[in-house]
Design a protein around this nucleic acid. Structure first.
Lengths: 208, 208
DNA sequence: TCCTTTATGTGTCGAACGATACAGAATATA
DNA sequence: TATATTCTGTATCGTTCGACACATAAAGGA
């Protein structure tokens, strides 16, 4: 069974990639169909036929982002040899990805739909869940480190995971504001400078 | 010379405060005139007569934010007895302000206009400059600490300032995602755990 | 070749956007 | 009281939004 009907005259994958970069640069609400038509070089009926609606197109764009840039950032979470190396690599690769020449700065998942407006509740919620997933992934990597004896059992690892997620998300804003790759590397280094104090501190000493 | 003409029938300051909270919750682009009319309980011609246009109203809202919530956060920058205490207080007060019950979560300056769309370039640039000002303020406080002998001359204080600004900005996103005040306090504690390592490290040792 | 199927380009839909025209109402001054 | 001045409510401006109707074009299958 082969393809029926008139064949598509544009490259769906390439058009999706261009849509992703527009959403990435301007956010979900900040991107109009006119923007997408111009960037994808495809008329709106063809966009609707191929992707459904603006929200569905955004979801595909997010999936593509997670499979490419996002994968490069969070892949280290499973491949790195230690919990500490995993966190350090996530921060450093984030610094690289957030300042890649010719690409939008910062992270689509973080900057894509921060506000919940009239008709973007589903999109906003999805990105929020993806951010929560990243946090969960980081926390589980730390717990694995504890289980494997790499890390002590005392510290509040949830708080520490929240801290590193906070830094990683803050880097998106810094990147948007023009921070250089070198500056973000330095931020990562500063965050890792806290590791020694955090990984050894006891839960019963103050807020940690 | 007294007031001429029909007097205003609404409280300008109270209406501005309500407008600020809408902008704070929904961002500049995410807030429509309809939202403002509903929140301020003032019809649009009266809004335009009193504030000019949507952008001018937003600017006044930002000024009000800086005078109130923003002032509480960054006031410590000058009042705290040491550079370290200044940073710690900024982070802790941020955690408080970003999770104040009944108020929008996070920071208006950070979340108000992250993307630069069609007609918000001026607003976007203004918020960006205010973020840069905060960074500058923090860096100058660190330099003052060096000048006064509190801090050593070796470390890359600009990188360290960028780090703490990154954490402070990341807390806005965490707050938006529902992080508790306690969780943000823990983030602040983690960030301060890096202080010892940062404030003593030499510039010629690696990236710092 | 005819029919079915799918994609394309033109044009446009109702709704919401930011912003005002206008007439009437409420005040100070003359 | 008469006039000038300012604010208020209704109603609407032109534009842009996301989405789609429609006729036509281009392919496979009979």
């Amino acid at each position: 069974m082969t393809e029926r009907g008139r064949p598509r005259s544009f490259d769906r994958a390439a058009a999706l990639r261009r849509a992703m970069e527009v959403f990435w640069a301007q956010g979900y609400d900040g991107t109009s169909m006119s923007d997408l038509i111009a960037a994808m070089n495809v008329n709106s009926p063809s966009i609707y036929a191929a992707f459904g609606c603006k929200e569905a197109l955004f979801r595909e764009a997010v999936a593509l982002y997670r499979a490419t840039e996002g994968g490069r950032i969070w892949g280290a979470m499973t491949t790195a040899p230690s919990a500490r190396a995993a966190i350090e690599t996530v921060l450093r690769v984030s610094a690289e990805e957030f300042t890649r020449p010719g690409k939008p700065r910062g992270c689509l998942i973080v900057l894509g739909a921060l506000h919940s407006d009239d008709g973007n509740e589903a999109v906003h919620r999805e990105l929020q869940e993806l951010r929560a997933e990243n946090m969960k992934m980081l926390l589980q990597r730390l717990k694995r480190g504890v289980a494997e004896g790499e890390l002590p059992d005392g510290p509040d690892w949830r708080a520490i995971a929240t801290f590193y997620i906070t830094v990683q998300q803050g880097m998106s804003i810094q990147a948007r504001d023009g921070a250089s790759r070198k500056a973000l590397f330095a931020v990562a280094d500063c965050a890792m400078a806290a590791w020694g104090g955090l990984a050894s501190c006891r839960r019963d000493r103050g807020a940690l």
